[in-house]
Design a protein around this nucleic acid. Sequence first.
DNA 1: AGTCCTCACCGG
DNA 2: AACTCCGGTGAGGACT
Length: 563
Amino acid sequence: MTRWALEATDDGGARLVGLSADGRPEGPVLREPDLAAAVRSRPEVTRWVWRSTFGIYPRLLAAGVRVERCYDIEDAESLLLAHEGRLGEPRSAAAALARLRHAPVPPDPPQRAAEPGSQSSLFEPGPVPVSLEDLLQVYGEQLKRHEAAAHPGRMRLLTAAESAGMLIACEMNRSGLPWSADVHREVLTELLGERYAGGGEPRRLAELADEVSAAFGRRVRPDLPADVVKAFAQAGIRVKSTRRWEIESIDHPAVKPLIEYKKLYRIWVAHGWSWLQDWVREGRFRPEYLPGGTVTGRWVTNGGGALQIPKVIRRAVVADPGWKLVVADADQMEPRVLAAISRDPGLMEVAGRPGDLYQAVSDKAFSGDREMAKLAVLGAVYGQTSGDGLKNLALLRRRFPRAVAYVDDAARAGEEGRLVRTWLGRTCPPAAGSGEAEEAGIPQDAPEPAAEGEEGWVPGYASTNTRARGRFTRNFVVQGSAADWTLLVMAALRRSMSTAGLAAELVFFQHDEVIVHCPEAEAPTVVEAIRSAAQEANRIAFGETPVRFPFSTAVVSCYADAK
DNA sequence: AGTCCTCACCGG
DNA sequence: AACTCCGGTGAGGACT
């Protein structure tokens, strides 16, 4: 393993130095005039240590230089701070350095929102410059902090994996997802009808709005929930909201066109012609991926809604001529992850059988009722607390006691305000008094309300917010450990495709699903690479267990044909 | 005019 | 049968 530290200078050059095994500089800091050339001329370097992947790697990619591995100091700082339970401390390299020197800690620079078509990074370099020498102080300290983690080996794996994720995200941000604007427009016209001049609703939406109004006997705007609720009330039907699941069972002539309107309206506003205009250039949709953008470690995208592409719009994702899309998604990832992290013997055995996992669970505990088994498993993971879920959960607990105890423990830890960690050590911050955690989407304890006041409050039981936090941490250990695992899969897949010298590129990633764009001849190799990456990630993350992580793969020209 | 909130949909 | 977990998105409207 050859490691070098790298800093981009303002004039397009680089300062860089080789590192010893313990992360200390070996020899003098070199100065080179060209950043990309400095990296390209050192193919023996297997890991580049730098302040921020998003701050430097896009420049290398633009010059045609890819790197094998990296270590992202600011990302590692985030993960380490969370692991140490230090919620809300600034994560920048400058802040880390200031803490090291007991100096005033600068706040993080604000995040900039993505603009359509922009190639810029989410995190601009901070306002406080940090020299390469200072950066290496922070790096050395971070290496020590890994050793103080609950499981040092897993923590090292976590920061390495997420650094790999940063490389992959930059590469995907650059390559983009193959997108046929012509097919997209065909789909839109088919669904929505022609657009009227002036940018108003397309024909089909206008017709549906008229049908809704006719059914109510007065002018109703279907895109205004308050208007719809009022219209139903005047028709003698009380509804609390206009959500589809609430109104679809109502016997009223307005319901059918209303539901159709909502579905199409959504496509029009979120993935219509203006989306196409904003986000698709030269046959590629380029969202900005951000690894670890959520508390659980799932990625988010910034702009373009790449993780919410409606199924009907997937017809627009079309491979280049002579190329294919390899679409792969992990089968029942979350219960398999629960088996691996809880080490429940029964669930591991079930997750090691070939074939459908929910069927296997149902054969073992639910007399062959697959739907019931699936609901029970998902209920355990999501914290379902009512209805048939509870009854099914009892059955699940009898057959798979360790698995259910694992998520129950996570829920209790969350309710008690303790730190909760994924398998690799990504940490859910404890409940805190400030509003900071709540802004990050983590349910927080609130002051206990008066006993008489709150509906459903029972003396001696946890408050609504505490229970919400329990559900959150219950889900966190499974969803977050699954995110750990997929990160390792992505890293292994990227490396094996690169080692094999393929032209194949990762072009899409969505929680448990990945798309590789490759020349047709490479497709079988890519399919096999995905299979072995899943195996490798399984072994590295969880060690030797009977649990299997199969992927369903499809080699297609169009994403919509994958399922 | 700009900011924040609610609603309801999309995806996993 | 109910709408539990994690997010992004845009429109409309209330507010400053």
